[in-house]
Design a protein around this nucleic acid. Structure first.
Lengths: 229, 229
DNA sequence: CGGTCGGTTGAGTATGCTCAATCCACGTGG
DNA sequence: CCACGTGGATTGAGCATACTCAACCGACCG
């Protein structure tokens, strides 16, 4: 695999590429030759906005944030991707958003130009990709409603339920990302995120532990009510 | 074509269906049998949130708004679709957002279950669909940045440039939708939309005519500067 | 032990919202 | 032809939600 560099000189170097002769067990036999695993350490950039979109990815473990930074530093995190999610597929030849590792991360890498072949072959991966694109679109639409029309409380409640649904076993889970990431995902400031979480904890809807990453949902019912529908 | 009703009894009846033995000239010969044109009058619902997603559509002329209404009446317009745009394709079997005619509208109707066939056949329409889904995703992502991280001025400037790019011939165009639609698309109130437009007009960036629908972009440069990037 | 990073909390403020009045274009009926 | 009603747009005044700026806290690490 050749280097993917295109954009600035200053951004972190691509993380080490780990060759594996077979992707994870969750992946059926692939018709094409690509599918290497790659490990990225917390905070590293997988690709930057503007990079050539040579590859797309599937999360094996860890968390990715997809983001755009405006000229004056404002940032919007379009989505977080967790184990099993596919991301990085683009319409054009460059990435319109950047992808960064929220925590330590392992992904499978696929060559983007094989996409059309995959679709035509009616391969399992091809179907997976089409479904995942439509899933991304669904998520994006719901998130637009959240960003355009809901209060801070509603956003936080919605976010907690979303993350819980994706990685909680029962009612407990650890947030993989820090407050700034949550804020930039929900269109809020870190202060508002912090205050709102504290507020929900005071009211007994959730429980927050020491460092603020561990969350217990005490009252899914009321949280769900808070969520606008 | 059989009726598409699934949801409420109260919503407007499906508009008249006009059979044509051939879609518009912009469409290459289709491998499948569907592709009827349908005319919808201003304000009518093409499908509601929750309706079975039997069909997807392509705009021939007019404007569509894709929207979700929350239980308490708050509304978010996910997108406007203009001539040439494809919309209404869903991941699941129901529409997660409703579609309504902003003005008088003509669309071509395609049967959704043919989609997989289209993709496998490597037909032109299949490619068009995949590209249009990815285009919708790009739009959705950009719109999330707008909703999450920009000011009212930036939103309005961005919106005007977007619409102009899609239907202006030169620097003049007529907004197909009313203030309430713009507000619900940009996550603002009608009052803020109105004030901001008036403000931009006062500053000479744009010119607004009589009923407020006709817009002239006097200074694309400064508008583009206003747009966050 | 000091520094840094992430998180929380407080005080004051600003942007955009709410509520309300007014305006204007247009269609309808007397 | 004009009075009237209606729907959409504009404008004003006051307010609320979330932001800004700032201090502080606690954990972790060198």
């Amino acid at each position: 695999m050749q280097t993917v560099t295109t954009a600035t000189v200053t951004r972190p170097l691509p993380a080490a590429v780990v060759m594996m002769h077979r992707p994870t067990a969750t992946m059926p036999p692939r018709p094409t030759g690509d599918g290497m695993q790659r490990a990225i350490t917390k905070g590293e950039e997988l690709y930057a906005e503007g990079d050539a979109a040579e590859f797309f990815y599937k999360v094996v473990s860890g968390t990715v944030r997809i983001c755009k930074v405006l000229n004056d530093g404002r940032r919007q995190i379009e989505a977080f991707h967790l184990a099993g999610d596919i991301f990085g597929l683009e319409r054009g030849s460059i990435h319109r958003f950047g992808a960064e590792a929220v925590d330590d991360l392992v992904v499978v890498v696929y060559r983007a130009r094989h996409l059309e072949v995959l679709l035509r072959n009616n391969s399992e991966l091809g179907g997976q990709v089409m479904r995942s694109v439509l899933a991304s679109l669904d998520r994006a639409r719901d998130h637009m409603v959240l960003l355009g029309r809901t209060s801070a409380r509603e956003r936080i409640a919605s976010f907690l339920l979303d993350i819980a649904g994706r990685l909680a076993d029962g009612d407990r889970f650890d947030l993989p990302m820090q407050r700034a990431d949550i804020a930039d995902h929900l269109g809020l400031t870190i202060e508002t995120v912090s205050r709102t979480l504290t507020q929900l904890a005071r009211e007994g809807l959730i429980k927050l532990a020491a460092c603020g990453r561990s969350v217990v949902l005490n009252d899914r019912g009321r949280l769900h009510q808070l969520e606008a529908a």
